[in-house]
């Protein structure tokens, strides 16, 4: 099927709807919001079909439109954003308790790779990722799913490079703490 034939509402939804929804959900937690953004993406795509470069893949083009909508959402959400986990870092910061692996020994997060099956470890990881601020989830997805460069991520999320290192650093500390708690159970 050529790309031309593919561009009608029916086929857009059938061929790309679920993919775009899955992509949006790698960055968002709110399924209704994700569905709305996919719908907006189709509307935008159909109104600016003439700007679609036939050389690029339709799905790539659609994904880039969706990505911009997700980024707009982050920017709007920014002002309402409060950090639900700042306590983790702010209390006793001088003791850097967060840096220390309180359990000591070698019962670290590395054991999760040995002790749990792939499915189990992915389930635990998902639950831990869900405890992060949503925006951080989006940043993690940009880095590990899309393998974006730091400059691009900083641009998308409107943060400075040093914000980015700190967020990745804190993400890992939180994930480590969360995974270790799960292992200790």
């Amino acid at each position: 099927m050529s790309e031309n034939e593919e561009i009608n509402p029916e086929l857009l939804v059938e061929n790309h709807g679920d993919y775009l929804l899955s992509f949006a959900m790698s960055k968002l937690r709110d399924l209704d919001l994700a569905k709305d953004l996919v719908q907006d993406t189709f509307v935008s795509a159909l109104t600016k079909l003439d700007s679609f470069e036939k050389r690029s893949k339709l799905r790539t083009w659609l994904t880039s439109i969706l990505n911009r909508k997700i980024i707009d959402h982050w920017r709007k959400a920014e002002t309402r954003y409060t950090d639900p986990i700042s306590n983790f870092f702010d209390q006793n910061d001088d003791q850097r308790h967060w840096l220390l692996d309180k359990r000591g020994g070698d019962t670290g997060v590395r054991n999760i790779e040995q002790e749990l099956s792939h499915e189990e470890s992915m389930q635990e990881l998902k639950e831990c990722l869900d405890t992060l601020p949503e925006k951080w989830n989006g940043i993690v997805s940009s880095k590990y799913l899309e393998e974006k460069e730091s400059e691009q991520i900083c641009n998308d999320f409107d943060i400075t490079p040093s914000n980015l290192w700190v967020i990745i650093h804190r993400t890992k500390l939180l994930l480590r703490d969360c995974l270790q708690n799960k292992l200790a159970r």
Binding site: D18, L21, M25, L31, L125, L129, Y144, L145
Partner: peptide
Amino acid sequence: KRFTHLSKYSF
């Protein structure tokens, strides 16, 4: 590993 494949969501 987590992000090698998108988790599947469907309409």
